[in-house]
């Protein structure tokens, strides 16, 4: 359910290392809790995000929730498909529902995130 090669934040974002970059999304747990996602507000390519600071907003029918960056750095890619297909976040949160790709400024931040086992404990699914 939670890929072993991803790292996880306490705010339920995942970070997947791809060379010097990190792909970011929200976890299955978060997607299920949010219920149907109808809108994802993401930063522009080129903007800076900061470790555990908000970088966007995800809205379900019932509520809006902030997205927190699991690493600091520059946004080099944004999932444009979410603009018209926000339901991808619910359908495939760890894959097609990814949100941004960040060029890390401090790779050591990844060590501060949880591994899959710690995350499963964090959400009580261990």
């Amino acid at each position: 359910m939670y890929p072993e090669d991803y790292r996880y934040s306490t705010e339920h974002e995942w970070a997947k290392r791809e060379d010097g970059k990190v792909r970011v999304g929200i976890t299955r747990f978060a997607a299920d809790r949010l219920t149907d996602v109808v809108y994802v507000e993401l930063p522009q390519v080129g903007s800076q995000v900061r470790y555990m600071h908000p970088f966007g907003v995800v809205e379900s029918v019932k509520a809006a929730s902030e997205l927190y960056a699991p690493v600091s750095g520059r946004v080099v890619e944004v999932n444009e498909r979410l603009r018209d297909h926000p339901e991808l976040v619910n359908q495939d949160p760890h894959g097609e529902g990814w949100m941004i790709v960040v060029e890390m400024s401090d790779p050591s931040e990844l060590d501060r995130l949880m591994d899959a086992q710690a995350y499963r404990q964090h959400i009580g699914e261990a």
Binding site: T35, D36, V38, S60, V61, K62, E87, N90
Partner: peptide
């Protein structure tokens, strides 16, 4: 508040 999901 929901069963299978609000949109469905």
């Amino acid at each position: 508040v929901q069963y299978q999901g609000i949109v469905a």
